[in-house]
Structures are given as C-alpha cells and as structure tokens.
Amino acid sequence: MPVFMRPISTKPDLLHASRPVFLVLFALLLALLPTGCQRASQQTTADQAPEITAVLTVAPDPALVGPATLLVQLTDANGAPVESATGISLKGDMSHAGMQPVLAEASGGAGGVYQAQWAWTMAGDWFVTVTATLPDGRTLLRRFDLAVSRP
C-alpha cells in the first residue's frame, strides 16, 4: 500500500450498520419532493379570459427564418370578433434557454384581427406568447407552438 493511503479506522462504528436505513430514508425524502406542482401566484402568466378564442396566423406559412407577418384573431364565446382589445403584445421564445426573445406590438382590430410585423431569427422550435387587455379589463394570455424552418 502506498504510504499516503488513508488509514483504516478501527474504532467501532454504530452507524455503519444502519446504512441501508439511511438510504431508504433518503429515497423517501426524494420521493416526497414536490413534483410538477406549479406555483399558485404566477402573476405574470395568468390568463383571465379562457372563453376567448385566439388564433395565430403566420405569413409566410409555414414559417421561415426572416421577416414575417403575424395575425392574431380574437373571438368571444359567441364567435363575435373582439375588436377593441389593447396592448396586444407578442413575444417569441425559442425552446433553448438564453435566446433573446422577439418582441412586437400588434395593431388593428377590425374584424377582431390584429397584425404585427415580425422576424424569425433562427430556425427551430418557437413559442409565441400573446398578451392582450380585453375591453372589460381582463388579461388574455395564450401560447402558440410552431416550428420555423430555413428558407
């Protein structure tokens, strides 16, 4: 044995025999960790208008890297267009963390359709989050998943 190896302890170790117990306890502790429980107070991501239908249309379709036009169409529970929503913002995130999002404001509203100029900066999986303030003051928030390809 090399001279620098650790000396083996000869003192009795009462805890040694309990090792399996500690392992089981640790496994139980892990199992009790919260799994998939979402925070209740996610103020920045709350949708207050689930009955409103939002449809996102992109042009060109399918989406290609480069400039694009995004159309958001809002209709209420009766199918009537929601024409006077305000502060309609779009945020495009890539699936990978750390990529700078694409941000835009949509305008218009005739027929419940709002339009924004856009630019897909990279091919891949995108998530477009639409936020709007409805005429009654509630916040609408929807997320759309789509794939962007190279031209």
């Binding site: 960790l33 979402q38 991501t45 963390a97």
Partner: peptide, 23 residues
Amino acid sequence: VIYDGLTGPQLASQNIAAVSVWV
C-alpha cells in the same frame, strides 16, 4: 434551481433553472 424548475414557468427561457444551468 430545483424550486423554480419544479414549480416555475415551464418555458425554458423564462425559468431560472434552465437559464442559469444551460447558459
């Protein structure tokens, strides 16, 4: 990282877990 990863928004770009670990 564990707390926000398990309970926070599951969009990677909005979560401390994904951003801090992978970036």
